[in-house]
Amino acid sequence: MDSAFIIEKSVLIVVVFAITMIMAMYSTWAERKVAAFLQDRVGPNRAGWGGLLQPLADGMKLFAKEEFEPDTKNRFLFFVGPAIAMSTALMTSAVIPWGDKLHIFGRDVVLQATDIDGSLLYIFAIVSIGVYGIMIGGWASNNKFSLMGAVRAASQMVSYEVAMGLSVIALIMMTGTLSLKEISVQQAGMNWNVFYQPVGFLIFLICAFAETNRTPFDLAECESELIGGYHTEYSSMKMGFYLFAEYANMFISSTILAVLYFGGYNYPGMQWMVDNVGVNTANILGIGVLFIKICFFIFFYMWVRWTIPRFRYDQLMNLGWKILIPLSIINIVITGICILAFN
């Protein structure tokens, strides 16, 4: 392994980390702007042009706020909870293909921090660890409302991970690979998986809402019942880590949706651009196309939040166990029959 390769990957990791943090930060601004638009009001407009510096002001406020901690907390786990939530939200970006490759200084730079054969397994493994951040934070607070919110979040995330995993199985049967890079390559042009797996995409999308604790599945934080849920006792940047983790998860889940079902960085005429304009221009445009898809899904998350009321908890669990899991199993069976019939 040469030093140039190590430098290349190190720079890429730093860039991906920075982009994830910036997207999470400005998603808070976009959330308030989208809510204001849908509710016919202005939204943040004081800090910077159009309120663009509002996320920086919010970050400075969180850093400067005094920390309040319950006397009865488990001190070690109280710190570990938000750290796990934030770390798992950032680690999933390591295997995402942000583009094909760029030719720089005589080298082909692959726009993916690491390409492992089991990229999808890695993502599901990291996502499943994320539930510990919420559960530990709620339990360590020694507050019954926090604990109830943590239990709700944990049971919700575990339940919907089952349906999400089953929906991806049908996609794996069709693509024959667990590598996100290979899945992206197979969707060249407009050969997007959403046209072949519309039911799987719908199931995955619904489960993504539940996994990120977004409305209408934000039962873990509903103020009318649980004050603030699992992070009720948190303040300052520990609270900020939980909030950042939610928006980072929303960014990553939007990216995975775009990569799995909407072609990732592929766009119509990409091969023509590579042949006639150049590989760098074509792939930079591909990165832009991927981020357009990501921003659409982030907007969709926000649109749904400010449009649909939250479910009751029994409705949430019934949807996961009685509708989505059977539907995803039926989708697997139909996918298998179609593969046998058409191959």
Rank of each mutant, 00 (worst) to 15 (best):
A163M: 01
D40P: 01
R75K: 15
V289S: 14
E182P: 02
T28C: 06
G137S: 08
T335N: 03
R152V: 10
L327S: 09
L171K: 13
T215P: 00
H231V: 10
F297R: 03
A220R: 06
G48I: 06
G118A: 11
I126M: 04
L290G: 09
R305W: 01
G278P: 12
T177P: 05
N213I: 09
A208P: 02
F201A: 03
Q271A: 12
V42Q: 14
L257W: 00
R312Q: 11
P198Q: 09
P44N: 07
L219K: 01
M23F: 13
I329G: 04
D40I: 10
K101R: 14
R214V: 02
F296K: 00
R152L: 12
A258E: 07
I136W: 08
W98I: 13
N213T: 12
S3R: 04
N283D: 13
K33I: 02
N191D: 14
A30V: 09
E182M: 08
S235A: 06
A18D: 07
V333I: 15
D117N: 15
D218E: 02
E246Y: 11
G137E: 02
M135Y: 13
R32A: 00
L12C: 00
C338T: 08
V185R: 14
I134R: 07
A125D: 04
V199R: 04
A188L: 10
I13M: 10
G165S: 07
M250R: 03
